[in-house]
Structure formats: structure tokens, C-alpha cells
């Protein structure tokens, strides 16, 4: 233990102990309170999929992106040139000549064309020979012919949802979209649930989910507020009433309306005084009421 420490003395050794989960120094709390904290964390963690806040400063500079694209293009060209010169035996050169003379449109699959497109700005000289290279694996050359996975995923999921899907299935699909960060697709499914069965419990859940999605990921606080308010109007004592009332306060906060936010927080604390979110709600209320 002491090998890690820079220096120390007996008094400090006595004072400090390695961290553990035993008693102290945090105040003891009841088992119920512990469970409530964990449940709230679970709910919040599940509700808010890993948020990628818009931080302009964190975005890589344009020159870096352009440089990376250029570098990638150049590397691809070099690899292509190297692989072509090494992997095609001399004896096949005569056979490969006619392939090269095939019309480009016949040799390029749409997916490959789509893949080649964003690389075009890298270099015109690089993009031109890449087209036949994409086609050569079909001839059995030992080259990586893995299809573009992103495209496969994109075309797969939406077609899986039948037009007559049950609301529960739609919610499940929406949650899957959400877990994958596809906020707009998830939002579309939530709206479909609301539209198809507006008075169902699924629609209530979808409304709340849509509200939090709009607030946290779609930059639509006004829309979020509408969803939360409607959910509260339909089911004031609903199973998600706590989230709804807190969501309303958060939406007002995002809209910059402090008076409305304070009213919403008061309403939240009145109805859910023992909520795990109560402490932060009270703290925010104090902040708002301080001059």
C-alpha cells in the first residue's frame, strides 16, 4: 500500500483508509432509499441513451477532416496499386486486360458506387482506378470483399416492421432505434403508436418517450413540452407521472422560461415529494428563487 504513496506519516496512515463500501464516510441511508436511488439511476440511464451533447468545440477542425480524407484516399490508392501489382500473377495479366476494358457501369454495383462517392473529393486520380478494383474480387482474387455493413443495417430494420404491427412491437422497435442512436426513426415509431391507438397505455408511454427524446436528442423542447403536457392531461396519476412532471420542468428550463420552470418544479415536488429527483429539483428551485 505504502509503495503507491508519495510520502506519508503515521497520522495520515491512521486517518486514511482505502475506499470500500463499508460504513462511512457517507451517511448511512435506508435500504429503501438505496433501492430508490438505484432504480432512479436505472430509469434515467435507460431513458437517456448515451447522449452525445452538441459541443461545437469538440468537433474536429475542417482541415483535420479534409486531411484525413486525403490521407485515406492516398492510402487506399497506394494499397490498391500494391495489391494489384502483387496479387495478379503475370500469367493472368492477359486475362485481366479484357476486364479492365469492360464498361465501368457494368462492373460497379450500386452499393460500391455509393461507397466510392464520398471518397471522390480526395483525388480525381485516385477515384478513377478504384472502380475496377471493386469489381475484381468477383473474379476470385484474394481481396477483402466484405460488404459495407452500415448499408446493410440501414436497409434491414425498417422493412421488418409490418404495417399492422402491435403497439408493443412498435415500442420495442422504437427502443431498439433509440438504443442505436437513431432518434428520428424512434420518434417516428412513437408517433405512429400515438396515432394508431391514442387512448392506449402504449400511446401514453410513447408520448412520454417521445417527449424525452425531443428534449434530449432532437432539440425540440417545445414539442417535448407538448408531449409531456398531453400525457399529464390524459393520465394525471399515470405510472410515469413523475417523469412527466419532471420532464415538463426540464422542457421549460430548456425554453428559458424560469417562471414556468419554477411552477413546474413546485408542482413536481407537491406530487412527488419523496422522489429521488426531489433533491435536485429543490436545489434548482432554490437557484431560481435566489436573486
Amino acid at each position: 500500500m505504502s509503495s503507491v504513496r508519495e510520502e506519508g506519516d503515521a497520522l495520515l496512515e491512521d486517518l486514511f483508509e482505502p475506499l470500500d463500501g463499508e460504513a462511512g464516510p457517507a451517511r448511512r441511508i435506508s435500504r429503501q432509499r438505496s433501492a430508490a436511488l438505484v432504480m432512479a439511476a436505472l430509469e434515467a440511464g435507460n431513458r437517456e441513451a448515451p447522449a452525445r451533447p452538441r459541443v461545437p468545440g469538440k468537433r474536429p477542425p475542417v482541415w483535420l477532416v479534409v486531411g484525413a480524407v486525403l490521407l485515406t484516399g492516398a492510402a487506399a490508392a497506394a494499397v490498391w496499386a500494391l495489391a494489384r501489382s502483387e496479387s495478379v500473377p503475370e500469367s493472368q495479366m492477359a486475362q485481366s486486360q479484357p476486364e479492365a476494358s469492360l464498361p465501368e457501369s457494368a462492373a460497379v454495383a450500386p452499393a460500391q458506387a455509393a461507397r466510392a462517392e464520398p471518397q471522390a473529393p480526395a483525388s480525381a486520380a485516385v477515384s478513377t482506378p478504384r472502380v475496377p478494383v471493386m469489381a475484381t474480387p468477383l473474379e476470385g482474387l484474394p481481396r477483402d470483399s466484405t460488404p459495407p455493413t452500415a448499408r446493410k443495417q440501414r436497409s434491414e430494420t425498417p422493412t421488418r416492421i409490418p404495417p399492422t404491427a402491435a403497439p408493443e412491437d412498435l415500442l420495442r422497435e422504437a427502443n431498439a432505434f433509440r438504443a442505436g442512436g437513431r432518434w428520428k426513426d424512434a420518434e417516428a415509431l412513437y408517433l405512429r403508436v400515438i396515432r394508431e391507438q391514442p387512448s392506449s397505455l402504449a400511446a401514453y408511454v410513447a408520448r412520454v418517450a417521445s417527449g424525452s427524446l425531443r428534449l434530449e436528442h432532437l432539440g425540440n423542447a417545445r414539442g417535448a413540452l407538448r408531449q409531456f403536457q398531453e400525457a399529464l392531461r390524459l393520465q394525471p396519476q399515470g405510472v410515469l407521472a413523475q417523469e412527466v412532471r419532471h420532464g415538463i420542468a426540464e422542457a421549460w428550463r430548456a425554453l428559458g422560461d424560469k417562471a414556468a420552470e419554477a411552477r413546474a418544479l413546485e408542482d413536481f415536488l407537491t406530487h412527488h415529494s419523496d422522489s429521488p429527483l426531489g433533491t435536485s429539483a429543490r436545489a434548482r428551485l432554490r437557484e431560481l428563487s435566489s436573486p
Partner: peptide, 27 residues
């Protein structure tokens, strides 16, 4: 999380002044 919570709360309390915010931060 239930098992980690006491440890998390203890660590937070070591790091922050007072008890008022411990549970918020632990959460």
C-alpha cells in the same frame, strides 16, 4: 449498482464538502 452504491457514496463524500449533494452526485 446496489452493491456498488455504498462505495460510490463513500467516494463521493470523500470528494465533496458536506452531505447535501452526496446522493445526487452518487446517482
Amino acid at each position: 449498482l446496489m452493491e456498488l452504491l455504498p462505495r460510490v457514496r463513500n467516494l463521493v463524500r470523500y470528494l465533496v464538502r458536506g452531505d447535501a449533494d452526496v446522493d445526487d452526485i452518487a446517482q
